[in-house]
Structures are given as C-alpha cells and as structure tokens.
Simulated assay, not measured.
Amino acid sequence: MQAVVRLGATAEYVVGSVHAVTEEGHLVIASASGSQLAPYASGARKVVWVAGAQKVVPDLETALRRVRSYSLPREHRRLQESGQSSFIGKILIVEREALPERATGP
C-alpha cells in the first residue's frame, strides 16, 4: 500500500527552470512556497532544468543577488496584475547530483 501512495504523490519526471547557474555548475532555484523544490531536490526520478545563457553568473554570491534583484522583482510585478505579491520563502542550491543520470538540461 505504501508503494501505491508514493507513486501517486511523487512525479516520475519534472521539468522546470532555474533562476541562476554559476560557472562552477551550481543551480539556484527560489520559491515562495517551496512546492516545486521537493521534486527538484530528490522527489522526482528524472529532472530536466531549462536555463538560458543569460542566467549564467560567475559565482554563488552573484547567483543569489540575481535571484533577489532580478527574478523576484519581475515575479512580484507579474503577480501584482492579479492582486498578489511574491517573496522568497525558500532557496534550493544544487551543487551536485548523487545520481548523475537523474538531472539533465538541454
């Protein structure tokens, strides 16, 4: 029974974006609720992240600054159109995958 519940609660695949990628290969993803972070971190069997060249930054400090000064203000403005606001509640930093074949990018 537990296996059936796990199958229903865990995604086999997850596709998403990251807010920044460091030149060393760290991925930085910010979220208000953190709902998408669990499958990114370890819940999904396979993860595909999409990131354009504009998201590549020199280091982790610059990546976190990009999240706060670039990504968050744009998300906040987008949500204001529907009367909501945004904030950073949780940040996931992926340094390395334990299973290298689990996570890929285009």
Rank of each mutant, 00 (worst) to 15 (best):
M1H: 04
V4C: 03
V4E: 07
V5Q: 10
L7H: 02
L7P: 00
G8Q: 02
G8P: 00
Y13E: 06
V15Y: 08
S17H: 11
V18Q: 01
H19F: 00
T22P: 03
E23V: 05
E24W: 01
G25T: 07
G25S: 05
I29F: 01
I29K: 05
I29A: 05
I29E: 04
A30L: 01
S31A: 10
S33E: 11
G34Y: 11
S35F: 06
Q36C: 10
A41Y: 07
A41K: 13
A44H: 03
K46D: 09
V48N: 06
V50S: 13
A51F: 15
A51Y: 14
A53W: 11
A53H: 12
Q54C: 06
V56I: 15
P58G: 09
D59P: 07
D59Y: 08
L64D: 07
L64N: 00
R65Y: 07
R68M: 10
Y70A: 05
Y70R: 06
S71P: 00
S71T: 12
H76I: 02
R77H: 04
Q80P: 01
Q80I: 02
E81A: 14
S85R: 12
F87L: 15
F87M: 12
L92M: 14
L92S: 09
E95G: 15
E95T: 08
A98L: 15
L99W: 08
E101M: 06
E101W: 10
E101F: 06
R102H: 04
A103G: 10
T104W: 02
